[in-house]
């Protein structure tokens, strides 16, 4: 066991998968000697050689297109896009190629690619460097979307993602990158894609969230009266959504609050609310509450903490849902 940050845990997973499988190839902007913008791939070029950790030009469409080509040719590419906002130029390759290749070839060709992308706000960056676009890609069949928030989960989920035969977008909440450490086993282990985690058990209300918001929710829970018992669910995988875990919890608590950083309208909170009412209608004691970013562009850093759901707003949402 080692005490690792999220960055180090992801790095460890990459090392182990690259050692285990020579077809795992990394590519991205400055992922080589510099180790990437957040140093997640630090030391990998020195260890495995430039041919397995390819520095690329600043060409997101080229990176993703080449990664899809590599995957067709039998490799397991792990491209990195520096910030979620830079997915824009690569959108065509992700959604029109990676996501659709299996369907377009009717099962003949799959794209075992893991696209790593730092995501979310909280690091004093401007828009395009602080956004949460996970719903956009969830709306595209053919992709799997993962967003772990703990070092332990990140290592296990990244190994699963690299081994998965389908294209996976692996979102890394950049606010958590170096925020804290936890014990992470040296040995390889996997966490199945598609399984949410119950972070804390409770009987009165269910909070569903993912990414860095998990920590804001934990802080909000700390501020609640002691006799309020909240069940906190970290989705970990966004697509496929673990509806069973959510529904089992809401059937028990009768109340649900969904928390995410992305804007509210047509966000994943809407999808989760719909699934909860489909599955738990007769158990619900209150409408599902959403505590989310606002329907505006992610603001620059002086206002970012106003934009993102914090413990106060989450706590307020929980209290309102409880009082309904």
């Amino acid at each position: 066991m080692a005490n690792l940050t999220l960055v180090q845990a992801i790095n460890l997973a990459l090392v182990q998968e690259m050692e285990a499988d020579e077809s795992v190839v990394l590519l991205g902007e400055d992922v080589g000697l510099n180790g990437g913008v957040f140093r997640v791939t630090e030391g990998l070029a020195q260890r495995f050689g430039d041919h397995r950790v390819q520095n690329t030009p600043l060409d997101e469409s080229g990176i993703l297109g080449a990664a899809v080509g590599l995957a067709i040719a039998g490799m397991k590419p792990v491209p990195e896009i520096q910030f979620e906002g830079f997915l824009g130029p690569a959108y065509d390759q992700i959604v029109n190629h990676a996501a659709r290749f299996r369907n377009r070839t009717r099962g003949a060709i799959t794209i075992p690619m893991t696209l790593r992308v730092p995501v979310g706000g909280g690091i004093h960056a401007p828009e395009l460097h602080s956004d949460s676009p996970e719903a956009i890609y969830t709306h595209s069949p053919g992709l799997k979307i993962v967003m772990p928030c703990t070092p332990y989960d990140a290592k296990g989920l990244l190994i699963s993602a690299i081994r998965d035969p389908d294209p996976v977008i692996f979102f890394e909440p950049k606010r958590v990158y170096r925020a804290y450490r936890e014990e992470v086993p040296e040995d390889e282990y996997t966490i199945p894609i598609g399984q949410a985690k119950v972070v804390s058990e409770g009987d009165d209300l269910t909070v569903v969230t993912w990414g860095a918001s998990v920590f804001q929710c934990l802080e909000a829970l700390d501020g609640l009266p002691e006799d309020v018992s909240v069940e906190l669910i970290d989705l970990r995988t966004i697509d496929p959504i673990d509806t069973d875990t959510i529904a089992a919890s809401v059937e028990k608590t009768g109340r649900c609050v969904v928390v995410h950083e992305a804007p509210m309208t047509a966000g994943l909170g809407a999808e989760i609310s719909a699934r909860v009412q489909e599955r738990c209608f007769l158990h619900l004691q209150a409408p599902v509450q959403r505590v989310t970013g606002f329907d505006t562009i992610m603001p620059y850093y002086k206002l970012e903490l106003e934009y993102m759901p914090d413990a106060n707003r989450i706590g307020k949402g929980i209290r309102e849902c409880l009082a309904y």
Binding site: H51, R52, A66, G69, L70, I72, G74, P77, D92
Partner: peptide
């Protein structure tokens, strides 16, 4: 393929060549 988006197959060609070269050389 057979690709419907104009020009979008061209990075795929680079990737296919990259993969083929990797397979042969590495």
């Amino acid at each position: 393929g057979g690709h419907g988006i104009v020009g979008a197959q061209t990075p795929l060609g680079a990737g296919l060549a990259f993969g083929a070269r990797y397979e042969w050389e590495v």
